[in-house]
């Protein structure tokens, strides 16, 4: 007597259930949540708030993979002078007194109450519904008031003509720019280039995800570890948090 064959329908259901379970567990195992690809034309939703949690204990002071990845993704020049743009930079810290050393990546903190948006005279600086702070390059007049207002030195002014337009984000001389949280990738359902590069290097110091989802990996981690928002005294509610400082 031969064993009864498993009907294809039952096989499909069991495989489907296994896949669903894997997808449900995956965010807990992975260091980021996959963003859902947004169909073109669908506006960003305030149900989502994108953010990052940076574990400085996992950030290697000799590594700048995140910076290189950002530069490549957005076709930014190699920073040589203080007039060159830096959307993300590595900052080396030494605690006064103890001498404890910390290394961390620094970029636009995508504040919930961004001062750059408040002060921009033309509304070129704006915040999307999903919390990503951007600059409308067609509306920016290059007054640099947002740079004066940003407590994180996160913005750069394009001091020279732009010759390389191969980057994912439009750039133009005389306008201000900063980290877009790789909005073009996020809208495609991908993660920011810096997060991907950090994971590729094996550090996995940057956790990216939806702060509004209590079950996302970033929300769960924020609940379980002590984290700091930079310049928390200003009460700007940054979307980026740091562990280990």
């Amino acid at each position: 007597m031969t064993a009864p064959a498993v009907p294809p329908r039952r096989q499909f259901l069991s495989q489907g259930a296994a896949l669903t379970a894997a997808l449900a567990i995956a965010p807990g195992l992975l260091l980021y949540d996959f963003a859902r690809a947004r169909p073109p034309g669908e506006p960003a939703s305030s149900a989502v708030r994108w953010g990052m949690l940076i574990d400085t204990t996992q950030c290697d002071s000799g590594c700048s993979a995140c910076v290189t990845a950002c530069r490549k993704e957005n076709a930014l020049p190699e920073p040589v002078r203080l007039t060159d743009p830096q959307w993300i930079r590595k900052v080396e810290l030494e605690q006064e007194g103890s001498g404890r050393k910390v290394s961390l990546p620094m970029m636009c903190q995508h504040c919930a109450d961004p001062p750059c948006v408040d002060v921009c005279p033309t509304g070129a600086s704006f915040k999307r519904a999903d919390g990503i702070v951007l600059v409308d390059k067609h509306r920016c007049i290059g007054c640099r008031y947002c740079m004066m207002a940003c407590p994180y030195k996160a913005r750069s002014f394009v001091h020279e003509p732009v010759t390389d337009h191969s980057g994912a984000t439009p750039r133009g001389q005389g306008t201000v720019e900063s980290c877009t949280l790789c909005v073009h990738r996020v809208d495609r359902g991908e993660i920011p280039a810096c997060v991907e590069a950090c994971a590729r290097e094996g550090h996995q110091a940057i956790l990216f995800g939806n702060l509004n989802d209590p079950d996302s990996a970033i929300s769960r981690r924020l609940r379980s570890v002590a984290s700091t928002r930079l310049r928390a005294d200003l009460n700007l509610d940054p979307g980026v948090a740091y562990e280990g400082i």
Binding site: V117, D118, V119, C120, P121, T122, G123, R139, C140, I141, G142, C143, R144, Y145, F157, V158, Q173, G174, T175, V176
Partner: peptide
């Protein structure tokens, strides 16, 4: 001194109500 002085018309016609710069215009 603006980065884009050619867009001064934008500054003159688009106002962000929370901007002190816009109030000053």
């Amino acid at each position: 001194d603006l980065g884009r002085p050619d867009r001064v018309i934008v500054a003159a016609t688009v106002y962000n109500a929370t901007s002190v710069f816009a109030w000053n215009v």
